[in-house]
Each structure stands twice: as C-alpha cells, then as structure tokens.
C-alpha cells in the first residue's frame, strides 16, 4: 500500500502509468461520447414543450456537473500539496484548472444557446448563470495566481490556498438554483428524490455525464503528462524517453 504512495511521487513512474491508463481511457471516452450523443440526439423523443431544442441538455448538463466537481478535484489536489507537498498534486492542480475553466465556459455557452429559443434571451442575470460565471473567474484566478509566481512549488501552494478558500463558494453556486430561482429551473436529478426527467431521456443524459467525467479525467492526465515533461526536461528519464522515440 505505502509503496504505491511512494511510487505516486515519482515522475517517470507516473508518466508511464498515466500513458497506460490513457491507452484505455481515451477510446472509452470517445465510445461513451459517441454512444451518448447518438442516443441522445437521434433516439429520444422530442420534448413536449421545447421540441428539439432541449437536446443541447446532453452537453450542457454534463459540462456544468463536471465543471463543479472539477473544482473540488482541484481544491483537493491543492490541499494535498499544502499538507504533504507532493509534486504530483501540484501538477494535478495546475492540470485540472484549465479543463475545469473550459467546461464552465462550455456550460455557459451552451446555456446561452439553449436560452435563446426557450427563454427568448441569450443571457439572464439569474443566480445560477451568474454564479457559474463566478466559478469561471475562480478558475481563472487560480491559474493567474499560479502563473504569477516564478517558483512553481510556491505557486502551487499559493494557488492551493486560493482553491481551498474558493470551495466555500461552490455549495452556494450548487444550491443557488434551489434558493433563488427565476428562469433557470431547479435541479431535476437528485440522489434522494428521484428524477423529474422521463427515464428514456434520463439514461442518455447519465451516459453523457459519465462520458464527460471520463473526458475530464483523460484531459487532466494528458495535461499532467505534458507539464511533467516541461518541468523535468533536464531529468535523465525524459532524455531516455526522447532517445527511445
């Protein structure tokens, strides 16, 4: 058990194991995405009120869910690098931030496109949309603080503190739909209360959420491999790797 943790701190070991995981994870992600898209876009009935426009839900909802969860992944990685000063956690934190920011942006843009036919406007200053915009800036703040420091181990610990402080905002964002909702509907899927979505529409949605989680994981792993190479380009294992190819 403990050897596993020690190995986790070794860049060459992590680099190769991440490569092996990606070999399986990337095809799996593509398969899940393709199945979910085709199922959601072609084989579900159009909505009673929204017609076909509701289908953007299959991108919008998974992106928003994973963007929120990704913030926690980033904050936990930040906490690990504050407590144990693990190099891998530093790299994981920096690798998560842009992926999360991009997913937040995706959720905002698809939300705007969905909003035009259903709400009649591209953007409302609703609690949910505004707080997702704030989430985007939380991600950007972490990236900006990290990039401002020259020394990357100081940078990761500073950004880790910021990430942890920012977690206070996430429950507020998550709950904002239930507390003050105006145009954005409250959460349709809950763990305890069942789902307000018809099951034939729900299953492709759940599949797409799984697909986005695995997309998130593969993007983070790819990012981590790249930044490992960037940080350790002087090390002998990177040279050996370059010679192999």
């Amino acid at each position: 058990m403990w050897t596993f943790f020690h190995k986790l701190g070794s860049p060459p070991w992590f680099y190769s194991i991440a490569g092996r995981i990606l070999q399986w994870l990337l095809p799996l992600t593509l398969l899940l995405l393709a199945t979910g898209c085709i199922w959601g876009l072609l084989f579900t009935a159009p909505d009673f009120r929204q017609g076909n426009s509701y289908r953007i839900m299959y991108v919008h909802v998974p992106a928003a869910v994973v963007a929120l969860a990704g913030y926690y992944v980033m904050a936990i990685a930040g906490a690990i690098c504050l407590i144990w000063k693990m190099k891998m956690a530093e790299i994981a934190m920096r690798a998560t931030a842009p992926v999360g920011a991009f997913l937040t942006l995706t959720a905002l843009v698809t939300g705007a496109i969905w909003g035009k036919p259903t709400w009649g406007t591209w953007w409302v200053w609703d609690a949910r949309t505004t707080s997702m915009l704030i989430l985007f800036f939380l991600y950007i703040g972490v990236i900006a603080l990290y990039e401002a420091y020259e020394d990357k181990s100081i940078a990761s610990r500073a950004a880790g503190i910021l990430g942890l402080v920012g977690t206070v905002n996430i429950p507020i964002i998550y709950k904002s739909v239930d507390w003050w909702y105006s145009l954005h509907q409250p959460a349709s899927i809950t763990f305890t209360g069942g789902s307000a979505i018809e099951s034939s529409m729900l299953y492709p949605l759940l599949l797409m959420i799984t697909a986005f989680y695995s997309l998130f994981a593969s993007c983070v792993l790819c990012n981590m491999r790249v930044s490992l190479i960037k940080r350790e380009w002087r090390a002998s294992w990177v040279r050996a790797l370059v010679k192999e190819d």
């Binding site: 704030i134 703040g141 900006a144 603080l145 401002a148 402080v165 206070v168 905002n169 507020i172």
Partner: peptide
C-alpha cells in the same frame, strides 16, 4: 490587478 481577480469572486456571497 491580480488581487482583484482573485478576491472579487470570493466577495460574491
């Protein structure tokens, strides 16, 4: 400029 970027989102609540 950085301080406003990292603080303002936290001021929201």
């Amino acid at each position: 400029a950085l301080i406003s970027l990292i603080i303002l989102p936290l001021y929201v609540p």
